[in-house]
């Protein structure tokens, strides 16, 4: 229950951090530490080097761009997102997911970008990023690149990020005026990782669903969108029976596994339930931006 020894580095500039990552083997980036430090305490992770990016003030900005997109720097915490009226107005799914993460002391330290980079398939933020197809910026001493969330997650705790890269920010595109979203999950206790969860949105114009996203977490080795169920929604009126049909399709398509927390069948059942519940919640919540 104590972390194994490691070499600690606290760079004072992004360039210095990128130099360290390029040069060191087996280095892990430490931001909030709410995923990395438990792994190290449990001796599931034994990095030789830890590069603490906590002093890189350039990464701590939470900005709403003039076009309404929301840019979340690598050091922005879940708590900042949870308590920001601007995020609530311009990135409602991000705002809705934040209070579901752990408990407040975890959210005080844990970062949005860290959660996305950690890529736990049962975590909220990766699924929200996927639902919104957020753009993730990764920087190395070689280059900077922007990766769509749809191309970002590769497997359990695995992403396309290279060992010498830092995720410096995630950007959520403008939230359309006619879009309604919600995040729902089923967990054993409040604050636990979800047995299964869903980040979803619907674009509704003239009482017709013109576009939709159903992004599940806790049912695969990555967060996963179910295109077949989204297709069921498009062109339909936003009614309970439409939502139920989409839920049935999602439950039929998803291939969750059984584990200590829930059987595969129960997860499939919950996929249908949460689809109905999430879409009903999304459409029930009124207001310009919700």
């Amino acid at each position: 229950m104590k972390a194994p020894p490691f070499e600690y580095h606290r760079p004072s500039s992004l360039d210095e951090a990128l130099g360290l990552l390029a040069e060191l083997d087996e280095a892990k980036i430490l931001a909030g530490g709410q995923s990395l430090l438990p792994l190290m305490s449990l001796r599931l992770g034994r990095p030789e080097h830890v590069v603490d990016i906590g002093d890189l003030g350039i990464l701590d900005s939470l900005v709403v761009e003039p076009d309404g997109s929301v840019r979340v720097g690598a050091l922005v915490t879940h708590r900042q997102v949870e308590t920001s009226a601007e995020v609530a107005a311009h990135a409602p799914l991000l705002h809705a997911a934040a209070p579901m993460i752990g408990h407040r002391p975890i959210r005080t330290r844990g970062t949005v970008c860290g959660s996305i980079a950690h890529a736990d398939p049962a975590a909220e933020m990766p699924a929200v990023a996927l639902a919104c197809n957020a753009a993730i910026t990764a920087v190395s001493s070689r280059a900077a690149r922007e990766i769509a969330a749809a191309d970002f997650f590769e497997g359990y705790l695995q992403t396309v990020i290279e060992p010498d890269e830092i995720v410096t920010r995630v950007q959520f595109g403008p939230w359309p005026r006619h879009r309604r979203g919600a995040v729902v999950e089923q967990s054993r206790r409040s604050g636990d990782y979800a047995i299964i969860g869903l980040a979803c949105w619907l674009d509704i114009e003239d009482n017709t669903i013109t576009d939709a996203a159903l992004s599940f977490f806790g049912v695969s080795d990555t967060p996963i969108r179910v295109a077949e169920a989204e297709d069921v929604l498009r062109g339909q009126a936003p009614t309970q029976s439409t939502f139920s049909a989409a839920g049935r399709t999602a439950a039929g398509v998803l291939r969750p596994t059984s584990d200590i927390h829930a059987s595969a069948n129960y997860r499939r059942h919950l996929a249908a339930v949460l689809t109905e519940r999430g879409l009903a919640k999304a459409t029930a919540e009124s207001g310009e931006t919700r």
């Binding site: 530490g33 709410q34 430090l37 330290r109």
Partner: peptide, 9 residues
């Protein structure tokens, strides 16, 4: 702000 002191170096 509340923090888990076991999850901070």
């Amino acid at each position: 702000e509340p923090v888990r002191s076991c999850l901070m170096l």
